[in-house]
């Protein structure tokens, strides 16, 4: 498969570029547009983003690799990010993590065989009032207990 950006994505990237006095400012947003469409930032996809924004491929790749929310290989449909920072640690994120690994039967960073979930840890997600907490895709969930995980996961097909 040769990944390619759709015209719609390119239009969206150009719209982002138009918002800023300098086009490179659109890069972070553009990479999300590309990643959302292609599933990951494959070399061909990066080259296309670089071409649309008119930046060196090396620069685009370097920038993308700096930030943790970009990925260079595909992941599951839903990304689970379990916060393991202090407040969540104090509230028992370890138990939650263990339960998740067991239930999904994957290791940290792994993806379920059906491609549904990828499990990762995260640093403080600014929701310590609901510790221990996690995000599934764009949604926050917490406080978590091993018991309520099934019900939450069931919402994500």
């Amino acid at each position: 498969m040769k990944a390619a950006l759709s015209e719609a994505s390119k239009v969206e990237i150009r719209r982002l570029m138009a918002q800023f006095p300098q086009r490179q400012s659109a890069l972070l947003g553009a990479l999300f547009v590309a990643q959302d469409e292609a599933g990951a930032l494959y070399p061909e996809i990066i080259a296309e983003v670089a071409e649309v924004i008119d930046l060196p491929v090396s620069e685009v790749t370097s920038v993308a690799s700096f930030y943790h929310l970009y990925r260079f290989s595909p992941e599951g449909r839903h990304l689970i990010q379990v916060c393991t920072n202090i407040s969540c640690l104090l509230s028992g994120c370890d138990r939650v993590l263990r339960a998740l690994k067991q239930r999904l039967d994957i290791e940290m960073g792994g993806t379920t065989p059906d491609g549904r979930f990828t499990l990762k840890t995260a640093e403080c997600l600014a929701a310590c009032e609901t510790a221990p907490m996690m995000m599934v895709g764009p949604d926050r969930h917490g406080p978590l207990a091993p018991e309520n995980l099934d019900e939450i996961l069931a919402r994500y097909g």
Binding site: P43, I46, P56, V57, S58, E59, V60, T61, S62, S65, F66
Partner: peptide, 20 residues
């Protein structure tokens, strides 16, 4: 001005390289 070598990743995993 050729941006041939770049820093990739960050922190202690930072490395100098070319893309891919």
């Amino acid at each position: 001005g050729d941006d041939a070598l770049k820093g990739f990743e960050r922190g202690f995993t930072s490395e100098i390289n070319t893309p891919f």
